[in-house]
Write a protein that binds this DNA or RNA. Structure first.
Lengths: 253, 253
DNA sequence: GGTTGAACCTCACGTAGCGGGAGGTCTTAC
DNA sequence: GTAAGACCTCCCGCTACGTGAGGTTCAACC
């Protein structure tokens, strides 16, 4: 008995554990679960200790813990708590992400169902363009946006998605053309922008700041002027300053 | 203007969309978003129509829809609803899975915190061995098991995880040894099994049937006798029949 | 018109956890 | 003795890109 009682074949172990033979091969390659012995011809022979270890692995795998972490955890059992705690945090993150995703998908379905003009392609493009902003936001801010989106309902969403690029494009054009900020047309457009922002953020001032900041940094080329050979005006600092001035003028009235 | 106004570079498009240049290369390879033109030297040039398409892609990607489906969906816009509906279903599945996972992890942490004997390694092995059964169950049944597990609390869980293999092993030994089903020792062991099953399933008869069925089909080698060179007794049909007889005797008393 | 730094190009490998198949050997039961 | 199963070792495939490596090309500045 120099093999330490290594008497289980891969197939048997696979059946006992509910895993596949291929998975056991994989664990062997990784060094996560090496059979305690091999027959002369190379067949794997596992012991009961191996089986025990496999049950541990299997459990942790089911909980979604990566194999690397499992390996680590099995050599240092005091780490179990930490790994589990980390995993729990991850799970909660995922849950949050999914619930947000769910409401987004539901909203989108609603939009698609209710609209024939603009067609669904245009609709997707509009919403997609808007969704670029979400990139820079925190969990809470995203949640806030989603709630606001729920609050205003599908019709307002549709209006909003179509309205903001128009408004911003018009302002960008005025900026490029050098129209002075106190021009009445510009002022009227700015008021439209105020409406858009209010509708979008629900009046949350922090949110306004965040979105605006993101716009300023990443909005380059978001509208129509990042084309090759054109100066990159887009929504960069120039437009930003321009809008700031227009706003100053609005407030002054 | 034979290029149809193809004037955006990859970099500009990347910035406008919030994606990376590499992602755009990837979409190009896949044929999901081909630049409408190339310069003589091979640089990609995109049109505004391309940008529009990119916004659509980006949105759908954010919702977790695979690129293949997006490609399909963009050639046939009537499929949008279906794809979204499928995705929503998926999301709900995931949510269910995650909430189950969360409670499992929480339970496990509780166990680990509260137990020093048996050590956490042994604990994991025990729970892992038990978790093999979950494989054959439906969503509802898993939920039911999880609820029952919550209900009985950590101490009972610990007892249960240690108890069932002992009981079943003992019954398997008697089965192999040919002890008659009406033997008092066997009967006593069977009563322990009844307790275990009741505690595990909470008395849900359908659940009992399901778990038992799974046991019968996949329990081979689950205990100690699938070793190479030994007859595969384990929890196969013989043990099954034996236990049935024992139960019959129990009921008869 | 030359130079330089940014942007661009095309490979091509890496990721996590196996699935699945090819092509060959071993074992075991009849 | 032989045939079926179980086993072996490669090795490619999957998702959606990230991350270089090694080499053009572009746009601007002197």
């Amino acid at each position: 008995m120099t093999d330490g009682g290594a008497r289980w074949s891969v197939g048997a172990l696979a059946k006992a554990s509910g895993l596949t033979v291929r998975a056991l091969h994989h664990y062997d390659e990784l060094g996560l679960l090496r059979p305690s012995a091999r027959t002369e011809s190379g067949h794997r022979r596992y012991t009961e200790a191996d089986l025990r270890r496999l049950y541990q692995i299997r459990l942790l795998r089911e909980l979604g813990i990566p194999l690397d972490d499992i390996a680590e955890l099995l050599t240092d059992p005091t780490a179990v708590r930490d790994v589990l705690a980390r995993r729990l945090e991850q799970i909660e993150d995922e849950q949050w992400r999914l619930s947000l995703l769910g409401s987004q998908v539901r909203n989108l379905m609603e939009q698609v169902d209710g609209s024939w003009r603009p067609d669904s392609g245009e609709l997707l493009a509009q919403i997609g363009r808007a969704s670029v902003f979400h990139d820079g936001l925190s969990r809470e801010q995203r949640t806030a946006l989603a709630e606001q989106s729920d609050r205003i309902g599908p019709d307002a969403r549709r209006w909003l998605d179509a309205e903001w690029p128009l408004v911003l494009t018009r302002l960008a054009e005025h900026c490029r053309a050098g129209t002075p900020p106190e021009d009445p047309e510009v002022q009227a457009t700015a008021r439209r922008l105020v409406d858009v922002v209010a509708m979008f953020t629900g009046g949350d001032q922090e949110l306004v700041t965040s979105v605006a900041g993101f716009f300023r940094e990443h909005g380059h080329g978001m509208l129509r002027d990042a084309r090759v050979g054109q100066p990159d005006l887009g929504l960069g600092d120039e437009l930003w300053d321009y809008v700031s001035q227009v706003y100053g003028n609005l407030a002054g009235n």
